[in-house]
Design a protein around this nucleic acid. Sequence first.
DNA 1: TATAAAGTTTAGGTTAACCTAAAAAAATAT
DNA 2: ATATTTTTTTAGGTTAACCTAAACTTTATA
Lengths: 217, 217
Amino acid sequence: MLSLTEENYLKAIYHLSDGGTKSVLTNEIAESIQTRPASVTDMVKKLAVKNLITYEKYYGVKVTKHGKSEALTIIRKHRLWETFLVEKLGFDWGQVHDVAEQLEHIQSPLLIEKLDEFLGYPAADPHGHPIPDKHGKFHVSRQIPLAEATKKKTVARAVKNSSQSFLDYLSKIGIYIGATVQILERMEFDGSIEIMIDGKKKVYISKEASENILVTE
Amino acid sequence: MLSLTEENYLKAIYHLSDGGTKSVLTNEIAESIQTRPASVTDMVKKLAVKNLITYEKYYGVKVTKHGKSEALTIIRKHRLWETFLVEKLGFDWGQVHDVAEQLEHIQSPLLIEKLDEFLGYPAADPHGHPIPDKHGKFHVSRQIPLAEATKKKTVARAVKNSSQSFLDYLSKIGIYIGATVQILERMEFDGSIEIMIDGKKKVYISKEASENILVTE
DNA sequence: TATAAAGTTTAGGTTAACCTAAAAAAATAT
DNA sequence: ATATTTTTTTAGGTTAACCTAAACTTTATA
Ligand SMILES: [Mn+2]
Ligand SMILES: [Mn+2]
Ligand SMILES: [Mn+2]
Ligand SMILES: [Mn+2]
């Protein structure tokens, strides 16, 4: 069984590795988890002993099969709780992340199965992120950042950034998961774009914002 | 803000003090929390510095006003979560305690208010224990152990012991919160009693069991 | 290729929450 | 009242998870 801290490290490493595909460096982990590189080195050795990652001194870590499965369990819990908070308790999609950050560490396989059932086995969380099933399986449709879309008409499917401030901003301008987004014009000089939301509302959004909205064409 | 450990100590002390009325000794705390007396002495000093209890060397601790209010918040959370698990997720009343023991430490005032609302502001948890409101207020009707009841006909209102094994036993013989319990006969030699549940089922229960069922006459 | 810069690890400390063993105080028994 | 037992505290360690500063390794630059 993993400690809360070990779980947070493992989840961070998994996310940074793009689902276990690439290896992750000490400084990236330190940055993402808000600790010092020296602390990361300590923890990374512990996780390697537990067979959750492989660690090659100076060259970073890779997530093992076992580590991937543990990470996906934590992510599953995180996203199920976020879904619960929004769907059942009426939280705003920008309010759920920090609470889910705590709830994801509750240890009870029964709880998570019952919660999943209660929510009707959702496929995605309020941010459009896929929820792994109890075996760690999930499906993602081909999503691209709005910034890279070539077709004029797209549908918002997920956000890349789940921060309160970004989600509050999206809500304010009227973007939500499932909204249709038409690209009206790209500004040459700063990459900002003019879009039409649900065929009704025209707004300008920055390049930065458009990179954090994932769409299907 | 309190650590998880501090919260567990404070809650244990509050329970042992009968709602803040009497003072609590080091060994009682150690016993209840499954630690060594020396560890209790350490923690008790910390809690005293934080003004949650008063500590008189060799004579035990008392819960302060502030400590009582913090303890009641934790108890409120514990009981709301237990109610959620039974009412919404379909847990058995014997399965909830350990999970609630973890959930009670989640830090989010918003979460707990929304959960309370979602549950319809319940007055008691699945074990019949009162749920304090957000100001720490709650009401208990005059409940006595079935072992001490003098009237023939009583109604089960709460359990004194929330262990899985005791609750499984109660379910098995057909006792639940709200069940009517008629006392048919008391056995002189071991204090066991014969009862009729809901006017239908006759069973014998031990003195021990009858001391852990709280009823109103 | 030698040197500088960047990234990482090691060495050595801190704090919270535990522990055992010894010392001290309080309660009980003679 | 004194001696014994019980309870509690103190002293001194351990472990997990952090930290800073110094020592390394790797990578980039001259
Ligand atoms: Mn977390
Ligand atoms: Mn999410
Ligand atoms: Mn607890
Ligand atoms: Mn309860």
